[in-house]
């Protein structure tokens, strides 16, 4: 599903070139649950952003579902965001001015889903995450865990093939974190959704079935648990 070849990402400063990512080669198959780990500044988020088309690599090739991403235009990328990729952020990134219901509904608006169908899809999602009672609340009226549930629900409503999660549990306490991770696991196993998460925590990484360690912009360990 994802094929990265020799990906470089760098920032040019006056005399030197600072590499954030250097020579990344990576293959992720459909149905994988991958955790990207590594110390701060290793380039985890940047890698995730590149995978999610939020950032562009300076060098190298990236194929998503055999489509060369490096030659996609803005519009086509938006099309992928709408139909294939869901995002979950550490800071939730819900829209403050919209209610829970409206936040979850939003991706459907960009996909031009019809009103009646939208209604049932959002209702489904609220049901599934057990937040029906909260549907008319605004994000700042919810706890962090609840907000993140909404964030996940929003990522899932477009039935994406790939979910990218940047430290999804970073702001949550352990019970809430577990709930989120269980959800991810279930999605992965039952619906076959590919999940890539960035995390610091071994516990969270253990929900997945593959770990990629990053150090100073390079993959140092690919799949340490493979033996298991």
């Amino acid at each position: 599903m994802i094929k990265l070849r020799n990906i470089d990402r760098y920032i040019d400063k006056r005399l030197q070139r600072n590499f954030i990512l250097k020579g990344i080669d990576l293959d992720i198959a459909e149905g994988d649950f991958v955790s990207i780990m590594g110390p701060s500044g290793a380039g985890k988020s940047t890698l995730l952003n590149i995978i999610g088309f939020l950032d562009d690599a300076n060098e190298g090739e990236y194929y998503f579902l055999d489509e060369p991403v490096h030659s996609l235009n803005e519009k086509q990328k938006s099309e992928y965001h709408r139909s294939y990729i869901g995002f979950v952020f550490q800071a939730y990134h819900l829209i403050d001015e919209l209610t829970v219901y409206e936040n979850i509904e939003m991706p459907l608006l960009y996909r031009k889903v019809k009103g009646s169908q939208r209604k049932s899809m959002v209702a489904d999602m609220l049901d599934r995450f057990n937040i029906v009672a909260k549907k008319d609340l605004f994000p700042n009226q919810l706890s962090g865990g609840q907000q993140q549930l909404v964030g996940v629900a929003r990522a899932l409503i477009g039935s994406p093939k790939l979910i990218l999660a940047d430290e999804p549990t970073g702001n949550l306490h352990s019970d809430q974190s577990k709930e989120i991770m269980e959800t991810f696991k279930k999605l992965n196993k039952e619906d076959g959704v590919t999940i890539i998460q960035v995390t610091h925590s071994d516990e969270m990484a253990s929900y997945g079935d593959r770990v990629i360690n990053l150090q100073d912009g390079a993959v140092t360990e690919n799949n340490p648990y493979e033996e298991e």
Partner: peptide, 16 residues
């Protein structure tokens, strides 16, 4: 700006 970012992540194009 944050709202715009989120919208774009969710698939909004420049035109939107």
């Amino acid at each position: 700006t944050k709202e715009v970012g989120i919208r774009k992540v969710l698939g909004a194009e420049k035109g939107h």
